[in-house]
Design a protein around this nucleic acid. Structure first.
Length: 376
DNA sequence: CCCCCCCC
């Protein structure tokens, strides 16, 4: 309460102490709890024409925040809200912590709220899209630079208009281990939702999207409730992903993006461009994923076979030629049926097929369930 | 945390 007194002192008696206190309480009320008393007092003082009440530090642009920024004041919009967590302090009290991603016109940053402020997250009072006046201290956190709002900080809803800019990564710049990835991309392929058993015995859900931008494409894995998104989106829609992380898979060491319970994905109106890049057939080497474009130059029969695990599958083989060469393509599963629709010279694109050294040591492409085939 | 490069 001392600091409120200090603020009152600066008013030079333009209002009685009681009136001031009442106005401060009203202000807190107006902000429906999303404002602390000290900030409310400064706002009241400001309303009364007195702006020199202390905390008039320069508003910091998010892009200019560095680990050494110290105490900062910013106005930013909530982009992501993570669930609050509780922990036990050494003194026996229960601490609370919650993280947000907030953004202004220049970029986005992680905000860590402690205790009373974290409770605002827990009670659902903080929503995506709200704008806040924030004062806190900067430190290097677990996943990069973050602004911490403790008991001496300010976290107060603001009616300032903030045109939030999410700093978008380009797909080509995504590397293994990267966190807090935001990007906009175009949906190229959508998987079914699969269920699996977690180690703890519960059932998990997983689904994938293949997305692309002007710089490349990448596979995205969605977990649990987020898998529902695959039902709401179509190929060629554009999406924005906030707070994903990148990991190498242990199958073919490809870097993939994961969107877990800390991340979000949504459709956006803006169209992200993507252009498939096709490899000349003569450039294909074994052990990579390729897309090729050419004409059908050979057609085989559909064959059924038993896999080692006893399941039945089918395969057919076709040949495709372009200006540089000719290659055999094994069409697996449902793709095998395509031979019935194809004629010699049909224009065909085989997208994301895996190359390997096959029959007679010749290089061939495998068109499996992640391969897309367009006939035109 | 899941899946996947399987035929003759």
């Amino acid at each position: 309460m001392d600091e409120i007194n200090d603020i009152y002192e600066k008013l030079g008696g333009v209002i009685s102490k009681d009136d001031f206190t009442r106005k401060v309480e009203e202000k807190v009320e107006q902000m429906s709890g999303l404002c602390d008393t000290r900030t409310a007092a400064m706002l009241v003082a400001h309303d009364l024409g007195v702006s020199d009440t202390g905390g008039e530090q320069q508003i910091q642009r998010i892009s200019e925040i560095t680990p050494n920024s110290g105490n900062v004041k910013l106005i930013a919009k909530v982009m992501t809200v993570y669930p609050a967590k509780e922990f036990n302090r050494n003194d026996g009290t229960v601490g609370r912590v919650a993280n947000l991603i907030v953004a202004d016109e220049t970029g986005s940053i992680r905000l860590t709220l402690w205790d009373d402020r974290a409770d605002l997250v827990k009670s659902g009072e903080i929503e995506i899209g709200q704008t806040f006046q924030i004062a806190g201290y900067v430190k290097e956190g677990y996943s990069g630079v973050e602004v911490n709002v403790g008991n001496n900080g300010v976290f107060c809803e603001s009616d300032e208009k903030v045109e939030a800019r999410i700093e978008s990564k380009q797909i080509k710049d995504i590397t293994n281990g990267m966190g807090d990835i935001n990007l906009r991309a175009r949906v190229l392929d959508i998987s079914d939702i699969r269920t699996f058993n977690k180690r703890d015995g519960s059932t998990g859900k997983v689904a994938n999207l293949l997305i692309g931008d002007e710089t490349g494409k990448i596979r995205v894995t969605l977990w649990d409730e987020l898998t529902d998104f695959t039902q709401q989106v179509e190929v060629d829609d554009s999406v924005e992903i906030i707070n994903a992380y990148a990991r190498e898979n242990n199958f073919n060491q490809q870097v993939e993006m994961q969107v877990g319970n800390r991340g979000t994905i949504k459709k956006i109106e803006e169209e992200v461009e993507f252009k498939e890049s096709f490899t000349p057939i003569s450039d294909i080497i074994p052990g990579e994923s390729y897309s090729i474009s050419g004409q059908v130059s050979g057609l085989g029969e559909i064959r059924e076979f038993n896999r080692d695990d006893g399941t039945v599958n089918m395969v057919s083989n076709i040949y495709v030629s372009d200006d540089t060469g000719r290659i055999r393509i094994a069409l697996w599963g449902d793709h095998a049926l395509l031979v019935d629709e194809l004629d010699i010279d049909t224009n065909i694109d085989i997208i994301d097929a895996y190359s390997k050294s096959g029959f007679n040591d010749e290089i061939e492409l495998s068109a499996g369930n992640r391969t897309r085939i367009n006939i035109h």
